[in-house]
Nucleic acid binder design. Structure first.
Length: 173
DNA sequence: CGCCAGATTGACT
DNA sequence: GTCAATCTGGCGG
């Protein structure tokens, strides 16, 4: 299981390191497992794409400890992020796509994966390092990483902050 | 409380 | 490729 030190780094590093890791979601007596195949890094005020940096509760959540789960609602979908960096830095990594390991719902999109794993506001602000409903495991798998500009973001930075497993078919469009 | 933007998706040209 | 439905949070009145 991944500990806080894993998240306590630059979001770009965490986004890359997250690829290939196993996301475990426990619902009652069911356990769903999926491999992370696509992520995006988000920064603080210097990042115009992040609505979460505009203020309010989301900004506050992004400034919390690394490893905090941040659930963000847009266009009737929930998007899940993990807070990264040191406390107060307001940085996060967005999960964009997963490869299902022991179930078959499509997870090739940020809104789809939250739906498949039944992730909602209940997990907002929970600590992924100490949560018994959602956590991450190191699969030990090495992934070939590719990068691109972020998707769906209107005001993107001039930097490639989207990372995905090269050749994997479960990435978003 | 109303208005608006937005890190989306699915259907359609 | 384009388009609009649909919901939540932020902000102004």
């Amino acid at each position: 299981m991944l500990q806080r030190d894993f998240f306590n780094r630059d979001p770009e590093i965490v986004a890359k390191a997250l690829l290939g890791k196993t996301l475990v979601r426990k619902i009652g007596n069911k356990t769903l497992k999926a491999k992370i195949v696509e992520t995006e890094a988000y920064y603080d005020d210097s990042d115009p794409a992040s609505r979460a940096c505009k203020g309010g509760d989301l900004r506050e959540t992004m400034s919390m400890d690394a490893g905090t789960i941040l659930v963000y609602g847009v266009h009737n979908n929930w998007l899940i992020n993990f807070v990264t960096g040191k406390e107060g830095s307001a940085q996060a990594v967005l999960l964009r796509a997963l490869e299902p390991l022991n179930f078959s719902e499509r997870c090739n999109g940020p809104g789809l994966l939250t739906k498949a794993l039944k992730i909602g506001k209940e997990l907002h602000k929970k600590d992924v390092c100490e949560c018994n409903e959602l956590w991450l495991e190191d699969s030990g798998e090495k992934i070939e990483i590719a990068s691109s500009h972020r998707i769906g973001v209107k005001k993107d930075l001039a930097k490639n902050l989207r990372f995905f497993a090269k050749g994997n078919k479960c990435t978003s469009r």
